[in-house]
Amino acid sequence: MTNAMTAAPARNLLIDTLRAFALIGVYMVHMFEQYEIYWAAPQQNLTHTIFTTFFMGKAFSLLTLCFGLSFFLLMEKADQRGVDFSKRFAWRMVVLAFIGLVHSLVYRGDILMVLAPLGLVLIPYHRASNQMILGVAAVLLAQPGLLFQLAGALSGEPWANQPPHHYGDTGPVFYRTAPLGQMLVWNVWQGQSFKWWFFLETGRLFQILALFMVGLRLGRAGFFDNPDRFKAERRAALTALAAIAIACHLGVGPLQSLAPDAATAPMARKLIGTLLGGWFDVSLMGVYVLLIVELYTGPFRKALDRLAPMGRMTLTFYVLQSLIWVPIFYGFGLGAWKWLPQSTALWLGVGFLVLQGIVATLWFKRFHYGPLEWVWRAATYRTTKVPFVR
Rank of each mutant, 00 (worst) to 15 (best):
F388W: 08
G171F: 13
Y381C: 01
G100W: 05
A137Q: 06
G277F: 04
T264D: 05
F98S: 06
M1N: 10
R127M: 10
G168Q: 14
V359L: 14
L96C: 03
G251T: 03
L147A: 11
F230R: 07
F230K: 10
L73A: 15
A137M: 12
Q190Y: 06
M213Y: 08
A236E: 09
F198V: 01
D16A: 10
V139P: 04
A265I: 02
R11T: 07
F60R: 02
F194G: 04
V26P: 02
L63Q: 11
L346K: 08
D228L: 15
F280H: 11
L62Q: 04
N12G: 04
R204P: 00
S193N: 05
L118G: 06
E294D: 15
G349F: 12
G335L: 03
L73E: 14
V173A: 15
V386C: 04
T17K: 01
W39A: 11
L307E: 03
L14A: 09
M267W: 02
P164G: 10
S86W: 09
L250Y: 08
N226F: 01
S193G: 00
Y175W: 12
K270P: 00
A236Y: 04
D84A: 13
G145P: 00
F332E: 09
P299M: 01
S257N: 13
P227A: 12
V282F: 04
